[in-house]
Computed example of a mutant assay.
Amino acid sequence: MIKKRLTVQGFAMPDHLHEAGQLIAKLSPYVSAGKIQYRAHVLKGLTSAIDGLPLFFSGKNEGKLMVEL
């Protein structure tokens, strides 16, 4: 990085929350048309959250890891 004089800059999502409505409006038609797909790994019930913790840390979940209450 130093040799090539690269700059690395991150961002935090809360910095852009004011733009969330525009993003949803822009991407929703693509999701509805099936052009953008997402995966969700849903665990049912609070007790299954404990079983899902190792999935979270190992990366073995398939898509966004969520617990349905």
Rank of each mutant, 00 (worst) to 15 (best):
Y30A: 10
Q37Y: 03
T7M: 09
V67D: 07
A40I: 11
Y38N: 08
A40K: 08
R39I: 00
L46G: 00
V31C: 09
V67W: 07
I24W: 07
L43F: 03
D51E: 15
G21M: 10
I36P: 02
K60L: 12
A40S: 07
G34K: 13
K26C: 13
G59K: 12
I50T: 07
K60P: 09
E68C: 08
G34C: 06
A20S: 14
E19V: 08
G34V: 04
R39Q: 13
V67P: 02
H41E: 06
L53V: 13
I2K: 13
G52C: 00
P14L: 01
E68D: 13
I2W: 14
Q9A: 12
K3L: 15
I36T: 02
V8H: 09
Q37P: 01
K4M: 12
D51W: 04
V42F: 02
P54F: 11
L43N: 00
Y38V: 12
L6N: 08
T47G: 07
L27N: 01
D51S: 03
K64Q: 03
K64R: 04
S32F: 04
K44D: 08
L6E: 07
K44T: 02
I36F: 14
F57Y: 14
P29C: 00
V31K: 05
Y38D: 04
Q9T: 11
K35A: 08
E62F: 14
Y30N: 05
D15P: 01
V31M: 10
S32E: 12
H18Y: 11
K64N: 01
N61V: 09
L53K: 00
A33H: 06
K26G: 06
M1P: 13
S58P: 03
M1W: 05
S58C: 06
K26R: 15
K44E: 08
Q9N: 13
G45I: 02
A25R: 11
F57S: 04
K4N: 14
Q37E: 10
A33Q: 15
E19A: 15
E62R: 15
L43V: 00
M1S: 09
P54D: 09
K26V: 05
V42L: 01
L23T: 08
E68I: 07
T47Y: 05
S28G: 03
P14Y: 08
L55T: 03
A33R: 12
K3R: 14
